[in-house]
């Protein structure tokens, strides 16, 4: 078995007395797509924030390819190959769609020694950025300010930024939330494409069961900040505790 690319050990964060993530230990390997499920407030986004560095844990450790990154800044983790798309759209609102993506490409590839040339002269960077806009079907909107996009397109741009980071670990936080039925497949196909590559670690927070079934190699269930189940989709979804907390079914309904 390949070594884990991302691992958290006894990861805990407390806000005041409330443990939003409580002693979560799990490891994820390249080539594996894990869906993280759990009711609202379970701690999924908070766990993401700990892994990508927006929050610092109260206890526990985070490892990337076996190296402790618990104290690294978010930018250092991005450089280390951890990429993250946000649940609440988190863009550069007054910059154009192309510039949003170009920034991510530029962060990944650097601008080299000729930093004084006008930004638009960096055709290689612009070309990569445009390619990501093609993939996410945003090319026609390249020159609009990000804030002017409808919600669904902003969600796509959120994903385009993540693609442009070219990470080894992709973290999607409800990427299709609020998208129309014809927009969501663009994103899901894209995630399936990344999965096919086979070398990337994919973590996906998603509520829609059909999506979970179609994509998941593995499911992790969080509840009240704790990891309550972890394993193959069929097995996890059949666990009584999961049916109770996640599907909202009381255990006695199971027999019915």
């Amino acid at each position: 078995m390949t070594a884990p690319s991302i691992e958290t050990r006894d990861l805990t964060i407390r806000f005041g007395g409330h443990a939003a993530v409580n002693g979560v230990s799990c490891a994820f390997r390249p080539g594996e797509l894990t869906v993280i499920v759990g009711p609202n407030g379970a701690g999924k986004t908070t766990w993401f924030n700990l892994v990508s560095g927006q929050l610092t844990p109260t206890e526990g450790r985070i490892l990337k390819d076996g190296v402790d990154i618990t104290r690294l800044s978010p930018s250092a983790r991005a450089k280390a190959g951890i990429g993250r798309a946000f649940q609440l759209t988190n863009l550069f609102p007054r910059l154009s769609v192309l510039e949003n993506v170009r920034l991510a490409v530029q962060a990944r590839h650097g601008i080299g020694p000729r930093a004084f040339r006008p930004a638009r002269a960096y055709r290689d960077i612009a070309a990569l950025a445009r390619a990501h806009l093609e993939t996410t079907r945003l090319a026609a909107l390249a020159d609009l300010p990000a804030a002017a996009l409808p919600h669904g397109d902003q969600r796509k741009l959120e994903v385009a930024l993540l693609l442009a980071m070219e990470p080894d670990v992709f973290m999607f936080d409800e990427p299709t939330a609020g998208m129309s039925v014809d927009e969501a497949p663009v994103i899901l196909d894209l995630i399936a494409g990344i999965k096919k590559d086979g070398r990337k670690t994919i973590l996906l927070v998603e509520h829609k069961m059909d999506v979970v079934r179609a994509l998941a190699d593995r499911i992790v269930v969080l509840h009240n900040g704790e990891l309550v189940a972890d394993g193959a989709p069929d097995r996890v979804m059949a666990l009584p505790i999961v049916r109770e907390i996640y599907l909202g079914l009381p255990p006695e309904d199971e027999a019915a």
């Binding site: 990508s52 560095g53 927006q54 800044s73 978010p74 930018s75 250092a76 991005a78 450089k79 993250r84 946000f86 988190n90 863009l91 550069f92 609102p93 007054r94 910059l95 920034l103 991510a104 962060a107 990944r108 930024l161 442009a164 980071m165």
Partner: peptide
């Protein structure tokens, strides 16, 4: 400009 617009995201995509 990215830092002015959204400093958290600028950091998240890899800018110190």
């Amino acid at each position: 400009e990215a830092i002015r617009e959204n400093e958290l995201r600028a950091e998240a995509i890899g800018y110190r």
